[in-house]
Structures are given as C-alpha cells and as structure tokens.
Design a binder for these strands. Sequence first.
DNA 1: TATGAATGAGGTTTCATTCAT
DNA 2: TATGAATGAAACCTCATTCAT
Lengths: 179, 179, 179, 179
Amino acid sequence: MTEQSVIMNNKEKIIHSALQLFAENGYAETSIDKIAKHAKVSKGLTYTHFKNKEDLLRACVEASVLQLTDEMMQLQETSLESLLRNLFHQLKAHTQRVQLSLLLVIHPKTPEVVNEMLSKQREELLQLLASLLPQQGDVRLEAELLLNLIDGITLDYVADPQEAQINTRIDYLINKYNT
Amino acid sequence: MTEQSVIMNNKEKIIHSALQLFAENGYAETSIDKIAKHAKVSKGLTYTHFKNKEDLLRACVEASVLQLTDEMMQLQETSLESLLRNLFHQLKAHTQRVQLSLLLVIHPKTPEVVNEMLSKQREELLQLLASLLPQQGDVRLEAELLLNLIDGITLDYVADPQEAQINTRIDYLINKYNT
Amino acid sequence: MTEQSVIMNNKEKIIHSALQLFAENGYAETSIDKIAKHAKVSKGLTYTHFKNKEDLLRACVEASVLQLTDEMMQLQETSLESLLRNLFHQLKAHTQRVQLSLLLVIHPKTPEVVNEMLSKQREELLQLLASLLPQQGDVRLEAELLLNLIDGITLDYVADPQEAQINTRIDYLINKYNT
Amino acid sequence: MTEQSVIMNNKEKIIHSALQLFAENGYAETSIDKIAKHAKVSKGLTYTHFKNKEDLLRACVEASVLQLTDEMMQLQETSLESLLRNLFHQLKAHTQRVQLSLLLVIHPKTPEVVNEMLSKQREELLQLLASLLPQQGDVRLEAELLLNLIDGITLDYVADPQEAQINTRIDYLINKYNT
DNA sequence: TATGAATGAGGTTTCATTCAT
DNA sequence: TATGAATGAAACCTCATTCAT
C-alpha cells in the first residue's frame, strides 16, 4: 500500500501536500494557495488548522521527525550496520523529507521551534551512534565525525541522487566500521 | 585592510550587498529593494547592471567562486594538510559565502547556471584532493568520502558555528590523514 | 451584584460580548469569531440566534436602548436636575454602551434599522427635556441646544474620560439651568 | 475653481481619494483597492508613497488639519462672531473632513499619532475661544462648554445635515454670545 | 440548541520589473 | 550611469457565512 492511498483527513492532506511542496520547491517558494490546491481543499481551511504558514511548517517537521523516529524504533537488531542501513534506507525512501530537513537546517531564517525539533532528533541519533561505536578513545568525537560523514553523503545524494554511487559509499562505510 | 574598506564601484557594491543579504536571509527572502538600500544605490540601478534577480545571484556565486579559487591558487605548499587547513580557514573567514553555496546546492530550484558553477568548483576540489591522497586503492572513492566528511563538518559549522568544536575535528582529521 | 455575575443564557452572553467588543474595538474591527470566543460559545451558535452580523448589532443596540429607557423610567422625581444627573450617571456607569451609540450615530454606513432606534430614543429624550425646561420662548430650540451641549460633553468624556472635568461641567450646567 | 480641478500629482490624488472615501464609508470599510481605483492609480503605488494604510490615514488627517488651520489664519477680524461663523462655514463646506475627524475622535482604535494631531488642533481652538470670550469668571470652563456645544451641533449636522436647522442654531448662538 | 470544519471573497502588503527623466 | 515613480501579479491572512453532525 503506497503512502498516498492511506485515507487522510483534510488536516493530514494539507500537511502531506505541504511537506511535498516545501521539499520540492522550498518553503518561501511554496504558497499556501499551491498547497491548498494540491491538497484539494480551500485556502481558508489551512488557517482553520494552522495558525499561519510557519505553524504549518512546524507541523510538517513534527510529522516528519515522528515518522523517522517511529521507523527507527522498529529496528530489531541494534548494530551499527543495521542502523546505517536503516538510515540510508530512509534517505532513499523519503528523500523529500530529508531534503526538507537539510533545507531547514541550513537556512538562516528557519524558525527556532523548527530548529529545536531537528536538533533534538539529531542529538538522539548522535547518542545512538555513540552507543554502537567501539567504546574506546573519544567516542563522542568519533560519533560526531561519523554523523558528519553521513550528512555529507546525504547532502550529495539529495543534490543529485545516484543510486550506484551512494550504494558504493554505504558498502565502503559499513565495511570500514565492521572491522 | 578589511573587506569593507576596499573602494568598490556601484556594481561591486550591489554584488557585495546581495551576497551578504542572500546568505543572511536567503535568496527568496531578499528583495532587490533591500539589496539596493543596503548598497546605497537606487533600485533601478540594479537592472542597469544585471538582467534580473537571478542574474544577480549568478554574479554573486561567480564572485564567490572566483575568490575561493584565487585563495587556493596562492597556496605554496601543496600537501593534504595545507589544503585542509586552507579550506577550513576559508570556511571560518567567509562563513557567509560558504553558507550561501550550501543553501544553493541543497535548494531544489537553484538555477542551472548557478549549479554548474558550483559543480565545476566541486569537481576541481575533488581532483585536487584525489591527487594529494596516497595513490593506493580506489583513490576517487576515498576523495569523495573525504569531501563528504568535509561537507558534513562544514554543514555543522554553518548551522551553529562553534570554534572549539570545529578545531577539534580539523585536528583529528589532519592527524588521521597524516599517517 | 455586578453585571457580569448575572446568570445569562447563551443568547444573552453573545449580545453582552458583542456589545462590549463592538464598543471597545469598533463594529468592523470585531469579528464574529472573537465575539463567540469571548462569550465562550461556538461561532455557529451566533447564526442560530442572529440572522447575520448586522442583526447582532441591532440586538445590541436594542438591548442598550431598552436598558437606558428602563433606568430613565425608574426616575421618581422628574425635574431637569434629576434628569441631567441621571443622564450623566448613565454615561459614567455605561460608558461603553454610550460610546457604541456615538460610534454608530456618526458612522456613515450604520444600518437604517439601527439609526431608527437611536433616533427614536433621541427624540423621546428631546421631548422630555422640552417638557422640563421653562415654558417660554422657543422651547424646542432650547431643548435641542441643551441636548447638543450634553452630546458635546459626552463626546469629550468618551474620547478621554476625566472624572473631575466632567463633574465640573455637570455642576455648572445644573447650576445654570436651576435659576 | 473647484477643489477637484486643481492639478494634483498622484500622491495628492491618493490622499484626496482616501479622505473622501474614509469619510464616506469609514476607515475600516474602505479598502486600499477602492482608494487606488478612485484615484485612478495602481494599488501598489499607495505603498510607494505611504508605509501602510494607517500612514495614509495620518497623511489624510494632516492634510485636513493643515487646511482648516490655513483657513482660520486668513481670518481678518478676530471676534467671537467671525470665529463661529467661520467654523460653521467650514463645517458646511467641508462636511466630509469634519465627519472623518469626528469618526476618528470617537473610534476607540484610532492610532495615537492621529489622535495627537486632532488633540493639538482642538487645544488651539480652545485657546482661541478662550481669548475671545469676555474675560470674567472661569474663562477656560466657559470656552470648554462652548466648544462642547459647537461639537454637539456639529455632531447633529453631520449625522443629518439640515441647513435650516443649523442656521437657526448658529444665529441663536451668536446672538447669545454677542450681548 | 450547539459545534467547528469548510468555503470563497476580499483585505493588506510585498515585490520583480519597467520606464520616463 | 542613475533615479524612483509606477505597475500588476501574487503572497499571507481574515472573515462572514454555511452546513453536516
């Protein structure tokens, strides 16, 4: 069952459309009007459910963060390899969401409330990474650098998605950390 | 002599102001009017020098790329260490320019002409990195992953500049690649 | 017992809130939504009780006019002095209602049905004044001018309520008409 | 030469149209769009000349106050009678401006900057009145009450302009104060 | 009676761009 | 080269009103 076939109420439809359009075109470049048309509701309804455009963005990021967390929770095996595979699987499956997050993290005018959600998620991931790395040396620093590397690969993939290329890198990465 | 005290003609003033405001507030969020006011020229003059807003952005990126290339050229020593030190030095000295580049690389609607300039610069850097790495194994892949790591560190720094943190990472990185 | 502590049904609550908000912020500036929230009922309920916003305004003015008439009726003594004292007492006690009436009288787009209620009340007051003035000369003209003076004082008080100032004027006025 | 035939630049045309429409329909009820159409300019031009709608209102009141002051200055004779005649002449000639002023004085949400202009003008008029009244008793109080009476008559006239009625009152007033 | 989701028109404001000077 | 008035489209948001429940 695809994501689109899930029955959604209007509020969810708006969030869904906003998420997609924000990621595809950017936050400032996406008008409430376009979102409403995409969700097939009236412009006004957006303001019944969300205080303003920023609040809608907040709801999008919240939904996005929740979903990622959800999927991470379902991981049975908790090895570094399975974590990495899961992360990159999500990158491929939800490229748009990841792209939106990146967009927001880098944009200098991203609302503080959004930044906080993204920071929190990042910190949790960092701690998870640290717990799975070999417990020797400066584990925190190692985790940070691993996350930086993951971010860099992500950035590259989002800017220009090339399956073969990212797969090579994932394999290399996992191979390196498995020994 | 600081950057600001250099005598600039009006065209340069416009580029300078645009670069700063695009980086500080985002491209879509920066109006031609604000740029003109910041540069202390009239709005109309912008259109004497640039075809439109996108053309002004192109000029900004061109200037930014040229400057980076210039400074890289002046490098005497061509070791991996000196290259890395120089890259991160530029990140600290011109955080805004780097931030703008990142903004543009990730933004899904960045004009093709801008993307090409940034890609070209990136490819040159990649080849330089590859030439300085130990010539064994898949050097291209190693260079790509090193660049990913640099990008990830850059992303982190731009999102929240912390001197101590980035210095630790730079030292770690150089130490690792020096052996 | 204060006005607020009177037990009111929902319809009365809506009128009460509308009256207050119309007076405090103006008719056009007050949305049905704000009124409903202030009255702690749903927006839809307003339309169960009133045809539309204008009808709600009409109900407000009706309630306001009725209350003023009521209080005037309870006057035992019917001298000019007691009438004047009562009028200004009401101005002080129900400044908001008076302000709303003034707002509506002056506004060029006040609905005819509202204007009629206010005119009728005004005409009754005028006749009452005329009946209490010394029956010599052009009593109607004298009454009109006295009412104009009362209106001017009211206007002044509503625009900037100053107890001491209005009291001085009331005393002066009563003193003048008592001889 | 009528007021309308004076050659006006676009900024003046906007102020002129705004003044008229604000007075005819109320401030909140008059959209920038209607003003622009009435002045036969584009909506956007309004924002070239005025910061926002409130700033346009301020400009209207400023123009209105200036004009009244101007005409008062041209008074040769400075007797109470000539002042009163002039005041009521202006009321008849510029009923709309006066109506707008009244509207604003009574409206609870009139911007402070507008209130200040109107208060200043009122205070000047009050002092002029006081200087022309017989210098005996509480001249200030007498002037205030005279102004209240003038205001009340004005209010009445604006709400329902009746030439005969106001003329009777003016004559009565002048006759009373001339002895 | 009571709720609040839903609509569509319209309001204020911004902005890229053009053009007369 | 330089200015800033002028335009028109489009953005965000509000609101009176309706309607299914």
